[in-house]
Design a protein around this nucleic acid. Sequence first.
DNA 1: CGAGAGGATTTGGCAAGACTAAAAAAAGGA
DNA 2: TCCTTTTTTTAGTCTTGCCAAATCCTCTCG
Lengths: 229, 229
Amino acid sequence: MTSPAAQDYLKAIYKLSRDRSAATTSGIAARLRVAAGSVTGMLKRLAEQGYVEHVPYYGARLTEEGEREALRTIRRHRVLEAFLVQQLGYTWDEVHEEAERLEHAASDELIDRMAKVLGEPREDPHGHPIPARGRAFIEEPLPTLADLEEGRSAVLRRVTHEDPEALRYLAGLGLVPGARLTLHERAPFGGPLRLTVEGEERLLGHELSRVLEVEPLDQVTAKGDENDG
Amino acid sequence: MTSPAAQDYLKAIYKLSRDRSAATTSGIAARLRVAAGSVTGMLKRLAEQGYVEHVPYYGARLTEEGEREALRTIRRHRVLEAFLVQQLGYTWDEVHEEAERLEHAASDELIDRMAKVLGEPREDPHGHPIPARGRAFIEEPLPTLADLEEGRSAVLRRVTHEDPEALRYLAGLGLVPGARLTLHERAPFGGPLRLTVEGEERLLGHELSRVLEVEPLDQVTAKGDENDG
DNA sequence: CGAGAGGATTTGGCAAGACTAAAAAAAGGA
DNA sequence: TCCTTTTTTTAGTCTTGCCAAATCCTCTCG
């Protein structure tokens, strides 16, 4: 059985090792706002219990069982967020903290019932896919708005941020999952981006552009097209 | 801030001191299935934090703040039980354990939203009254079926039991809150009770009769009445 | 009144998790 | 390569809660 703290670590390792191959001690520490020494201690315990492979001074990766456990927690979190928004009138900026606590207390049975009431939702309110119960799952990464070429259009798919203030700000700009946007230009040296969101011209700092995952749309040339018509 | 464990202790003390004036160490230990020494330790901590007055070798009672805290937890628990049954299709025997975990993770905000969706319910699925947020509250005790005089009729109001098996058994006999019943006779020495529940004749062990709280109905004399007519 | 009996408390241990400070290892720069 | 910086780990401490065993109160009965 995994404790709430252990579940948080497994989630963090899962998320960190989607990019890199192994999660580093300092990465986990930063994500969980915990001292580095605490992380080493927990990794040792998780390794003993078979949830993690820990190579000292290198990093940690999840075992199969650890990944299963992480995905169970992520599923609980995301179903909870969806339920809070759709059934209880929460807004997308209010749900993270609540779900963060409930995910450790809710049974899988409860989560399944919630999912059923919601019609087996595929995504949480921030656009993140919800793993199905007990099934393998790969969250394929999307490019962020910071990666998008100038002049390209895209659909905003996921918002990778938890801060309520930031989320409210983004919603105020129309930047919610599903929004259609066009990037006009990006100022150099991490300067702001100029873009159109659902027809409105907007400015956005570079920092925030990195938390917006987008699905680029097929190039549509403005003046006449160059492939067969 | 009270920890989950502390909340469990406060709840236990609240429930134990509704009968007696102070909760005893062994009473709390039995209720929480914890060693007596653990209770003494926790009482000391709770007393330091001002939730409890502890007189060694005598017992503990809640301070005003402790009672407030206990009632908040009880409200959370009962709203959760009601929500699980009414919105998520749980049966009354399945909800206790789930609510027992969620009550420590759910915010008061969430509970209020759930209560609102349910139309501010007054009682949980077992008939226990739900304290209103932040308001004083007295759970006036009712007599149990074990106290009822032979020949009297009553309405079953509350079922004070958590065991799923027992609850299913009781439901099978029609013994759910709101059921109308008549006690015909009680066998001596803790023997079974013979009663009619919603028109069906039933037998019930003495043990279980003590967890059924009833509201006796006005005496209706079978053959002609003796007061003015 | 004195002696038990039975609860209650104290003591000593353990495990989880967190922190800080210091030691060790890895990485990077000149 | 060597020396400095950064990162990790180790070591020691704290708090919360739990247990078991030993001790201590209290109350009742003879």
